[in-house]
Amino acid sequence: MKKETSPLQQPVEIINIGLESFAEDIKKMDIPVIQMDWRPPAGGNMRLLALLDGLEEEA
């Protein structure tokens, strides 16, 4: 890829999923960023996920 066509040479807008501090660092560089309010299902707790999966069969 030629340098002048690289997406990173264009103005970028970023959606950050996950740690909010990543978005804050980007904001400090004056780059537009949207922090998505997302977290892993059941907070990533495998036991709770298994319970939810079990209940899905009863839904």
């Binding site: 977290r39 299902p41 059941a42 907070g43 709770l48 319970l51 939810l52 209940l55």
Partner: peptide, 8 residues
Amino acid sequence: IRKVVETG
């Protein structure tokens, strides 16, 4: 309660 636990 399922939605609360799933979404956090």
